[in-house]
Design a protein around this nucleic acid. Structure first.
Lengths: 219, 219
DNA sequence: CAAAGGCGTGTGACGAGGTCACACAGAAAA
DNA sequence: TTTTCTGTGTGACCTCGTCACACGCCTTTG
């Protein structure tokens, strides 16, 4: 599926959907922009065309935790919640890269739901996907150790050279813990030879050992 | 809205929905029955007619955490996830009371989605509601103290006499912590005069103080 | 009735994790 | 170069989850 800057060409959509969406123009959002924050009213249903947006829950201490990332072709579920239930946002969305997205106003959204089976499928599957991810998140946060979550993060966000370009603070947010804890765990992983660390970069030295850690090895 | 044992009368549904649902017969489930457990394949979309079902996530240590409760008129989102994404269950559902429910097979479910706007609304709003609850849960588990969560639980699950009939183990599950922790926190709340406790029952003595605890008072 | 379990509860010890208050070093800006 | 910012390390302290018990109440059963 290809994502162009023409909203009428959103992959897989049918005639009625294209007819309604064709009138909308994409919005450009610069890197670092906050798309919405807690308490704000919902303006419409959001579909990403390009770029990447992270949705975080922010705690009273300033600590935050990544709920999910929105990538091209996906939609922001938070907005759907608002449209369907009338509630305001409880999370905060930030553009991690410059992004282009379509904002589908409330009435157009409902018209689409009723007229386009393809659009229904899009919304439903987005829902299902996010929900699954949320349950996974709850499971991870409540039942997995920080060490395991950290090892998992390093493994699946690292590039082909085995390098992960993230600060400790970013890692902390991604796995839902505090920065200091990440510092201590990374040190432990480094001491045991799994990884090497320098300012802003973690390098995998022993993939196999790291996988053991994910699966709950004590070391 | 009234929930009868006639599936065709599910509140608020329209003609096409009634036509399709009229052919289904409700299933009776005894108290304590496990409706589904992790890894099991999804059989269909479930709508509750009466009774109460709790959906829990179970950790490797045996500790579990209540994701949400399904009450009459609501549906079990877990099943929807399975239908839409093809994934198996990751949580466990247990009947807390004897229950009656309708299992809508996969193909009927999709027929309903396409033909009945009312059914679509039902499914969508169920989704939105659960999602919101999940986000609330993540927020509570990651950012609120056990003491606050416990106080909140006591306040909103107690009867009109200010009595909560639950064991410490049940409370622990409901707020996602361990039984021993509940024991210690209850003792603290009792010492400070907020509540009185006896075997299987907690009684509220000072509602105002308890509300302070919910809002994060240190005491 | 008494003995035997089951169940709900209390408790101590211990390790993991989150918070606060710093110190320190490399990088970027002035 | 000096200043400032940003990423990182560290110690102290408290909360929380886990393990391993003990104890008391209730029900069942002989």
């Amino acid at each position: 599926m290809s994502w162009t800057n023409n909203t009428a060409e959103i992959a897989g959509l049918d005639a009625p959907a294209r007819a309604l969406l064709g009138t909308l123009t994409p919005v450009e959002v610069p890197k670092g922009a906050v798309l919405f924050c807690p308490g704000e009213a919902v303006k419409g249903y959001v579909v990403m065309l390009s770029g990447q947006v992270d949705v975080n829950l922010v705690g009273p201490t300033g600590r935050d935790i990544l709920l999910y990332r929105v990538e091209p072709g996906q939609s922001c579920i938070q907005s759907t919640l608002g449209l369907l239930g009338g509630d305001d946002y409880t999370a905060e969305a930030t553009a991690e890269t410059a992004a282009r997205l379509v904002l589908i106003p409330r009435d157009v959204f409902f018209a689409l739901i009723d007229s386009s089976p393809a659009f229904r499928r899009l919304v439903f599957s987005a829902f299902a996907e996010r929900m699954q991810a949320m349950m996974q998140l709850i499971e991870n946060v409540s039942f997995m150790s920080v060490e395991s979550r950290l090892a998992a993060l390093i493994l699946d966000r690292s590039d082909s050279d085995g390098c992960l370009h993230m600060t400790q603070a970013e890692m902390a947010t991604a796995i839902g813990t505090a920065r200091e804890v990440v510092s201590r765990r990374l040190e432990k992983l480094a001491r045991s030879g799994c990884i090497a660390q320098e300012r802003g970069v973690v390098t995998i030295l022993d993939r196999k050992a790291l996988n053991q850690v994910v699966r709950g090895a004590a070391f």
